[in-house]
């Protein structure tokens, strides 16, 4: 038996909105640790790892580890039927072939049950080793989204370079080139407006903007995004989910032939 009650149901709605276009179907894993997911896009260029820790749920019952295969557009469609202030409860029976999403309005005057069919998904679970990154950039998530959107009007790829000058996002396309440099700016009034760059050594990597733009759909989940870069490793774009966990996107770099 599985029963997970999330007071801030909008978090789950936002999570689904941020991954449904990147990943078609995925297994959601539930254990004592929490509710998690690891999935790649169909071309195996990007990977998403989600963790919502059990402590973040108002009620968390998971009698045995369970893996539930879901088509993400269908799950997103059902969650769209929940109000932004609704409490969402995920329920499933051991060995069952359905999952139920229950939506409760804040004053309990409306309770809805949506039952969705589960599917069997053969997914490959990848081991993500702990890595030392050459550079870690923390910046406002809205600023990062804006940069990715602006650059994708010019080109298809972004070169992210971190030097002691700051972090530079560059692209080029048929009509011209664009460079956006963000300097460390830790002395702002609000901590969420700060740009903080931890650089062990300079690093420069090239990525497909299409994927970066897709990751920025997680912007409503967090004010700050953390971008971890190391040569020869996928970039990690992380959005922390308030008190609960994270959504991390890994993107394989483009490699010079």
């Amino acid at each position: 038996m599985l029963e997970l009650r999330l007071l801030q149901g909008s978090l789950l709605k936002k999570v689904l909105e941020s991954i449904k276009d990147l990943v078609t179907e995925a297994n959601f894993d539930c254990s004592a640790t929490g509710f998690s997911l690891q999935a790649m896009d169909s071309s195996h260029v990007a990977l998403v790892a989600l963790l919502l820790r059990s402590e973040g749920f108002e009620h968390f019952r998971c009698d045995r580890n369970i893996s539930m295969g879901m088509k993400l557009v269908n799950m997103a469609m059902m969650l769209k039927c929940a109000g932004n202030d609704d409490i969402i409860t995920i329920k499933a029976d051991d060995g069952g072939d359905t999952v139920t999403f229950m939506f409760e309005s804040p004053n309990q005057d409306k309770i809805a049950d949506f039952e969705m069919k589960l599917m069997n998904i053969d997914s490959e679970h990848l081991g993500i080793p702990e890595a030392e990154y050459q550079a870690i950039v923390r910046m406002p998530s809205s600023e990062f989204a804006r940069i990715c959107k602006d650059l994708s009007t010019i080109g298809d790829t972004v070169i992210i370079s971190v030097t002691k000058e700051g972090v530079k996002f560059s692209t080029k396309g048929d009509i011209g080139t664009a460079n956006i440099v963000c300097r460390q700016n830790a002395t702002v009034d609000k901590p969420e407006d700060a740009i903080i760059i931890e650089m062990k050594e300079p690093v420069s990597l090239t990525f497909a903007l299409r994927y970066m733009n897709s990751f920025t759909k997680a912007t409503p989940l967090a004010n700050i995004v953390t971008i971890s870069l190391s040569s020869e490793l996928p970039v990690v774009v992380e959005y922390k989910i308030a008190e609960m966990g994270y959504i991390r996107f890994y993107l394989a770099p483009k490699i010079e032939e």
Partner: peptide
């Protein structure tokens, strides 16, 4: 042109 890398060449199946 640069070639797109693949996640599975960085992270191994467990």
């Amino acid at each position: 042109d640069a070639k797109q890398g693949n996640i599975m060449s960085f992270f191994k199946k467990v």
